[in-house]
Computed example of a mutant assay.
Amino acid sequence: MSTITESVDVKATVSAVYNQWTQFESFPRFMDGVEEVRQVDDVHTHWKISVAGVTKEFDATITEQHPDERVAWTSDAGPTHAGVITFHRIDDTTTRVTAQMDIDPDGFVENVADKLGILDRKVKGDMQRFKTFIEHRDGQETGEWRGNVDRPAQH
């Protein structure tokens, strides 16, 4: 299991940045290797990704979501991963977005990519492309979802 942490400062309000991040179906526009994300309901997404020329599909569950603060998820099947994206107001027009992900590479190619630091660079590139995506829209998001998803109770 590898942990990847990456941050980027975005020239947009925290609400606009958060709102854009909740538009999961726009992820292929700035995430390398993500071919499609479909929001099934408020807490379930279906992903189609391409890794080293191999297409994979998997489902993920949003485990916690609070407007302008955080979105956390875990995979239900397929590549094992979980993570959280947090949003921090730096000032009225700047937001720091931090991604922290735990990834368990699946198979030889993904393990090699992890060992060579390719996964870290991929996440860094995705974060930079997200920054460019929203900043080129003059900080205007393509949509929003402002609902709350509370973390499941521990038993």
Rank of each mutant, 00 (worst) to 15 (best):
G83Y: 07
E25A: 12
Q100T: 15
H155M: 02
L116D: 02
G143P: 10
G143M: 04
D114V: 00
Q39F: 02
T93Y: 05
N148K: 13
T98L: 10
I62M: 13
V10N: 07
D138M: 08
S2C: 06
D91R: 10
Q20M: 12
I85M: 13
P28M: 04
P67V: 04
V17Y: 08
H66Y: 06
F87G: 09
T80W: 02
T74K: 14
T93P: 02
T63I: 12
H44Q: 12
V17Q: 07
E135T: 09
V71N: 12
T80E: 14
T45S: 09
D102G: 09
A113T: 01
D102Q: 15
E141P: 15
R151C: 01
T86Y: 08
Q23Y: 02
G83S: 08
D104L: 10
K11P: 03
F27E: 09
A153Q: 14
D120S: 11
A72P: 09
M101T: 10
H46E: 15
P67Q: 08
I4D: 07
V43D: 13
T63Y: 08
I62Q: 10
D59I: 01
D68F: 07
D9P: 10
P28H: 03
I134V: 06
D32A: 05
M101L: 13
S2G: 08
I4W: 06
A153E: 14
T63K: 13
Q154Y: 01
Q39V: 15
K115D: 07
R137C: 03
K122V: 10
K131D: 05
V109Q: 02
R89C: 06
P79I: 15
D76Y: 02
F24G: 11
T55F: 00
D32E: 12
Q39D: 03
E64Q: 14
A99D: 05
V10R: 07
T142I: 07
M1K: 11
V43K: 14
R29F: 03
D138V: 04
A12L: 10
S75T: 15
R38D: 10
D104T: 13
T13C: 05
V123G: 02
T45L: 14
